[in-house]
Amino acid sequence: MGNIWEIIFATDFIFSVVRVTTPILLAALGAIVSDRAGVVNIGLEGIMLMAAITGVVISAQTQSAFIGLFAAVCAGILIALILGYFVLEMKSNIILGGIAVNLFASGGSVFLLYVLTGEKGTSSSLASKVVPNINIPIIKDIPIIGEIISGHNLITYIAILSVVAVYLMLNKTPMGTKIRSVGENYHAAESVGINVKKVRYIALGLSGMFAGFGGAFLSMGYVSWFSRDMSAGRGWIALAAEAMGGGNTIGTTITALIFGFAQAFANSLQGLNIPSELITIIPNVVTVLGLCIFAITKTTKVRKVKANEKNNN
């Protein structure tokens, strides 16, 4: 058992938790914004994939990681807006639209790769660039803390800043109020003159932007190439994190961290004497447990409210 504690308190481990969490957290932020506006974007998985391939292709063409990153984020926004067009203008179902985005991205990213490189598996023949890791001046020299906080990929820091930005945006700005009111009751929002369609476009665009950063992290930060279906379920885990976090920024960030922790912990346990099947289910068990706890707390709250109502009557 001593080994397990050694693993958890190692700086390498905490560092890897942050790294594993980054793409999940970014996609989860995307899920929050769209969900709060009442348009649940389940196409995050697909948007991440398309952003990942776009980043690789454009950075290889321009030989600039930053133009690649910019293009990846633009691709994310674009796809989210296309989804928005079908949902908001053509009145298609948002869930079906999201499924379509995921299916399109899984095949479309490979098709794009094939057209551009003649490869169908990985983009190893493209000399794409990687977004650099950042050593924070001063902090990096502090023992332990420096090892954990400094030296991450630029996109990881963008993710952390995004948490703050999303929190402030949703809770402190007029735009945030609009997004929340549209999500709560769009008829009411409409009646006070809010342009519901516009707000939802903006919310979807933002969710595409965050998922785009998440996708770019996969192919331009984590590893240095694109490979088919490399988002590997992270978009779905992000949706679970958002649901478990109750749709608020802080709760979702914490659940994303829990998922990242479970994933990194499962990776670390591989070194110990535990059957691999048990290890691979840890993140999934944590997800199910988390959702159960969420559901139980919610139902008890509802019960309490109902009990109060009865008493009052």
Partner: peptide, 18 residues
């Protein structure tokens, strides 16, 4: 180490670093 998945390079990298 077993990754439990054949299409997740980031996970392969994570396990490799470990």
């Amino acid at each position: 180490s077993y990754a439990g998945v054949f299409t997740d390079p980031p996970k392969g990298k994570e396990l490799g670093i470990l």
